[in-house]
Design a binder for these strands. Structure first.
Lengths: 154, 154
DNA sequence: CTCAATTCGTAGGTGCACTGAACAATACCC
DNA sequence: GGGTATTGTTCAGTGCACCTACGAATTGAG
C-alpha cells in the first residue's frame, strides 16, 4: 500500500482548479470563445498589431498553440492577420470591430465569473491566493527560461 | 483601451500554474508517464479492481478522458482490464507488476518535484496554498454536481 | 555581397479534457 | 417475464498544449 494522497500534490490540484474554471467559464461566460481565446483578444486590445509570437509570449502559449488559437479567431472573423511589410516572416494581428465588441461583452462576464469563482475566499484570502499562485507559476517558469541574471555583461 | 490585467484572473493563473507543472513534471519525473496517468495508477494502488468510471471519479476525469488514459496504460502493459463476471458492462482494472514498479519509482520522483515546485513558498504558505486551492476547486465542483444535501433519506 | 545562423510561421504527432450520441448489459417495474 | 430506464464504455468532434522538424524571410559575419 504505497498509494499517495493526491490532495497533497499541487499539480493535481492545479489541474482540478483549471477544470473547475473551464466548466464555470463555459456556463457563465461563453460556449464559443474559450478562456485562452479571450486572453489573446485581450492582448490585442492592449497592444494592437502584435505578431503571433509576441502574443504567445504575453499570454503564455507556445508558437504551435497560439497559431491554432489565432486561426480559429481568424476563421470567426474576430481578428485579421496582415503580413508585415517590414518583415515578411511575421503577421501583424488586429481585432476586427466584431472582435472588439466581443471582447467588451466578455469582459463584463468574466468579472462576474471571477467573483463566483473566488466566492469561497474572503477578500484577504483572495489577495493571498493571487500572490501564492503567481509566485509559484513565475518560479517554475524561471526554471524553464533561465532568464539572464541582471549582470550578464560578461 | 479596455484591456484587462490577466494577472487578476484566477483562471489564467490556474492555466499558467498547470503549464509550469507540466514542464517540471516532464523534466523531473517522467517523459513517458504523464501526471494524469500517474494519478490513475495511484488510484489503482489504493483500490485495486476499480472500474473505469469510479477511477475517473477518484482522480477527477470524465468518462471519455479516463477511457483514453486507461487505454494508453493498457497498451504499455502497466495495467490490465478484465470484464467483470458479475456485471458485464464494466471492466475491472488492476496494475501489472510492471505498473506497480513504475508507480513506486515515480512516487519518489514526484515527491522531489513537489519540493522544487513549492520551493518559493515557506512551509506555512504551502499549507495555506493547499487549503485555498482545494477550497476553490471544491466549491466550483460543487456548482457543477449539486451534491445531494445531507438529508436525502426521503 | 554572399553564406550561415537566427527567427516566424506551419505541419505532423502525442496527450489531456469536455460534449453529445450510440451501444450493450443490467436493473427495475408491472 | 417483458419492456423501459439506468449505467458503463465507446466513438466522433472540438479545442488546448507541448515537441520536433521544416520552409521562408531576415540578419549578421566575413
Amino acid at each position: 500500500m504505497a498509494a499517495v494522497d493526491l490532495a497533497t500534490h499541487p499539480g493535481h490540484l492545479a489541474r482540478r482548479l483549471q477544470q473547475a474554471h473551464y466548466l464555470l467559464w463555459n456556463t457563465m461566460v461563453s460556449e464559443e470563445i474559450t478562456s485562452p481565446q479571450f486572453a489573446v483578444m485581450n492582448a490585442l486590445v492592449a497592444e494592437p498589431g502584435l505578431d503571433q509570437r509576441t502574443v504567445g509570449e504575453r499570454v503564455g502559449l507556445d508558437r504551435s498553440t497560439i497559431a491554432e488559437v489565432i486561426s480559429r479567431l481568424d476563421r470567426r472573423g474576430l481578428l485579421h492577420k496582415v503580413r508585415d511589410p517590414q518583415d515578411g516572416r511575421r503577421f501583424l494581428l488586429r481585432l476586427t470591430d466584431d472582435g472588439l465588441r466581443t471582447h467588451r461583452r466578455l469582459t463584463v462576464r468574466t468579472a462576474r465569473m471571477n467573483q463566483v469563482f473566488l466566492a469561497p475566499l474572503s477578500a484577504e484570502e483572495q489577495a493571498v491566493f493571487f500572490d501564492l499562485l503567481r509566485r509559484v507559476a513565475d518560479a517554475a517558469e524561471e526554471l524553464r527560461n533561465p532568464a539572464e541574471p541582471l549582470a550578464t555583461r560578461s
